[in-house]
Nucleic acid binder design. Structure first.
Lengths: 182, 182
DNA sequence: GGTGCCATGTAAGGGGTTACATGATTAT
DNA sequence: ATAATCATGTAACCCCTTACATGGCACC
């Protein structure tokens, strides 16, 4: 069984050879908001994928700077396709803000609306990052990549709307208090 | 620094003493959809929290069946409050279905709409579980707990609507294909 | 007497992050 | 010259899940 990180690597390699560094960059400007990965994961995983014969690494130094490009083998492409054609099972989320809200029974309305406001601002920041990505790479990405970006935007917007509704429910008279970005 | 799991434990203990088993049960019918935990986490964490003086365990056997009830110490309550009053930082999600969609550039429309349909059904199942919880415990839970349940329902409904819109975008003429639950 | 729930735990392993270490190259 | 970026990697650690192990109790 391959980890999801392994599948992400295979996924990016389907369009052509990449170095570990480049894969990390791609993740940071695309899947990051619903699937992150770090170097500490990527480099060892690449070696293991090579060991299993799903990718091959080729030394492609740039000047004196060492660099290894990886590309899919036939087995790797097959494995990727198999994964893509099977149902996606894991769906996890960890939302510390929501967790705090859940346990905030004893807090004041002001305190709770502060948390909600912070959550809203965090979502706005995430939205900004997505919009920035849209503006830089959106022209060169495909249909399904565009869809996931779209989902991200819609999701954050949904959350923002929900926070706003909740704040209003806590604080029906005073609508002037929410800080910034309205 | 306490882990989120530790905070969840403290959070549940604020309303009265509980055993590890009971904490796990509570998690499964409440925070589970945005924060899960297993026995392998809970029992060791309880011991560590006791070691740090944030909870105290008392043997409360039921007949011959061993049972340890934990309750918050003053330090534990203080620590919980501190956490509740600070901004919630971590917000992660891992959505394997979305990940597959992202890499599905080369798949057929039928294949992609299959994935979307599976995702939709999974969300429906999650919604059913939330509604079941609402019907059983909703009367005895507080305002902020109710809000998080609410969020869960709204979130799944948002996702379902998005999947439906996306399937329609792929398959504008044939609206009859989506399997079940319409 | 078996099934299912109550109740507690541990061992092994997976998956992941953070911090650190090293060095080349490019832009300012 | 120096900061930023390219590029690769490892060690330590954290958090968590799965599987296993044990046994009492209740109900049919």
């Amino acid at each position: 069984m391959l980890s999801n990180t392994a599948h992400v690597i295979l996924g990016f390699l389907q369009y052509g050879p990449l170095s570990g560094y480049e894969i990390k960059q791609k993740i940071d400007v695309s899947t990051r908001f619903f699937f992150a990965a770090s170097y500490g994961q990527i480099y060892p995983e690449l070696k293991q994928l090579e060991h299993s014969g799903l990718v091959t690494g080729t030394a492609k130094a740039r000047g004196q700077r060492a660099r290894t490009e990886y590309e899919l083998t036939d087995a790797g492409r097959e494995r990727l396709d198999e994964w893509l054609r099977s149902p996606g099972v894991t769906l996890e989320m960890r939302d510390e803000g929501l967790l705090k809200l859940f346990f905030s029974e004893r807090l004041s309305n002001a305190e709770i609306t502060s948390r909600l406001d912070e959550m809203r601002l965090a979502r706005h920041a995430a939205l900004d990052r997505l919009h920035a990505i849209e503006n830089t790479v959106a022209k060169q990405i495909g249909r399904s990549e565009q869809m996931t970006l779209d989902y991200g935007v819609a999701l954050h917007e949904f959350a923002i709307a929900w926070y706003e509704r909740s704040v209003a429910a806590f604080d029906p008279r005073d609508r002037s208090k929410s800080k910034g970005r309205n």
